[in-house]
Amino acid sequence: MKKLTVLKSLVVAMIVFLGFSLTSCNDERYEPIPVKLSDVDGSYKARLVTSQGNKFNEKIIEFQAKDTIITFKDFPVREIVKTIITDPVKADTALAHIGKVEYKLEYTSKINASQNLVELTFEPKTLALQIPVDGVTKNAVVKLAAKQKGFFVGYDWSLRFGLEAEKITVDGVELTPYQTIKYDVPISVKN
């Protein structure tokens, strides 16, 4: 009988001890690491969603951010070329001749400490392309714009932004009718 009482007392003491040890865990809170402007720098792999009207295309792209410039070694120009050249076979031939197109997107940044992110304000430059079709080279100038700010989010260390090809001019003549081409990067992660 005495052994049973001692055993019960030990079990009760153990349960009380475990209860107190688990409640101490409730006081710990997540403290995010504050972002710095230099945190934006790095190589990224991103999901790019390209849309024009009701047509959508998704693909994985890579780019680098360094010293207030995002560099695309292979900027996606497929939709631009297919807007200029409506024949799909000729457009694919032109894309093969053009190859990879490098584009540099400049930005300014500022820290938003209350939300633990870096806000990016973009300053897109025009994109010039020489498109070979039917033995002639067409000179295309694409006016790119950024309607919204981009964000480097401190919570998951991702970069998010979007661009639009607002207007395309071919050999000095503006394409009309024209549907805006949107490039959205809803999420990108550092490599």
Rank of each mutant, 00 (worst) to 15 (best):
F152D: 05
L144W: 08
D67G: 09
V89I: 15
N112I: 03
L129A: 08
A91M: 07
E119A: 11
P88F: 11
I80N: 06
K90M: 09
E174Q: 13
D87P: 05
A165F: 06
A65V: 00
I131T: 04
H97L: 11
I80C: 04
P88W: 07
K149M: 06
E166Q: 11
E174P: 04
T83E: 14
A65H: 00
K149G: 03
P124H: 02
K66L: 12
Y103Q: 12
G150I: 02
V173L: 05
T126W: 00
T108D: 15
A96F: 14
I111F: 03
T86E: 11
E79Y: 15
G154H: 08
G172A: 03
P76I: 02
L163T: 10
K82N: 10
R78F: 12
T83P: 13
L144P: 01
K143R: 04
I85D: 13
L127E: 11
Q148M: 08
T83N: 10
F72D: 08
L120M: 07
V173P: 00
E79S: 15
L163R: 01
L159W: 01
E102N: 02
G154V: 02
V136H: 09
I85T: 08
T121W: 01
E62Y: 01
Y107C: 01
G172M: 08
D87Y: 14
A165S: 12
I85A: 04
T169A: 11
Q115A: 12
K147S: 14
K90P: 01
V141A: 10
A128P: 01
D134W: 05
I84R: 03
K143C: 03
T86R: 09
V153E: 12
L105H: 06
L129T: 03
K82G: 01
K66C: 02
A146V: 00
V173I: 05
T169M: 13
F151P: 01
Q64F: 00
I131S: 03
F122M: 11
V133F: 06
N139P: 06
T126R: 08
S114A: 14
A91C: 00
A145M: 11
T83L: 02
G99F: 11
K149P: 02
S158D: 09
K73Q: 13
Q115M: 09
I131Y: 07
G154A: 09
F161Q: 02
T169P: 04
V141Q: 12
K82H: 14
G99D: 10
L105Y: 12
T83M: 07
V142P: 08
A96G: 14
K104T: 06
V81T: 05
V81Q: 11
P132F: 10
L105T: 05
Y107M: 00
V89Y: 12
E102T: 15
A140N: 13
E119C: 01
L144N: 01
L159P: 06
